[in-house]
């Protein structure tokens, strides 16, 4: 539970340090903000492994086969990476790169959920 406290402290001190060196050499301060993002993301992902175990328990209990759970988890992963990547690019004022990463994330999410859409269409076909 104390991960949020650590993340906030690391984030604030890191941004202040990045501000210190922003005037003289902005590229090293950009790299510093990148390292802060990776450190905080690393902390949150450790907490996420516990959540994933509960998901697997749910999978074992019901007949909710992993064919449905896997795309959901993948979409969450794609969303996180796309969001992280595009916001880091927006920090250094590269809007075009950020939006291209977001478009790529959306298309990857769609690609991952293709089998789900196919089974849905087949089910609808059988109903009709």
């Amino acid at each position: 539970m104390e991960i949020i406290l650590k993340a906030a402290i690391v984030g604030i001190t890191g941004t202040i340090l990045a501000l210190v060196i922003k005037k003289t050499n902005p590229e090293i301060s950009g790299a510093l903000t990148l390292i802060i993002c990776t450190v905080i993301a690393g902390m949150t992902l450790k907490a996420l492994t516990a959540i994933k175990e509960v998901l697997e328990l749910v999978e074992l209990g019901t007949d909710f086969s992993s064919a449905y759970a896997a795309p959901i988890l993948k979409c969450v992963g794609i969303g996180i990476t796309a969001r992280l990547g595009s916001d880091i690019c927006k920090d250094s004022k590269q809007e075009a790169v950020a939006s291209s990463i977001e478009v790529c994330g959306a298309i990857c999410a769609l690609y991952v959920s293709l089998p789900l859409i196919k089974t849905l269409l087949r089910m609808i076909g059988e109903l009709a």
């Binding site: 210190v20 060196i21 003289t24 510093l32 390292i35």
Partner: peptide, 13 residues
Amino acid sequence: LIFKIAAVGILVA
């Protein structure tokens, strides 16, 4: 690592 890179940045400045 954050403080190491900040130190490098200040040193270079």
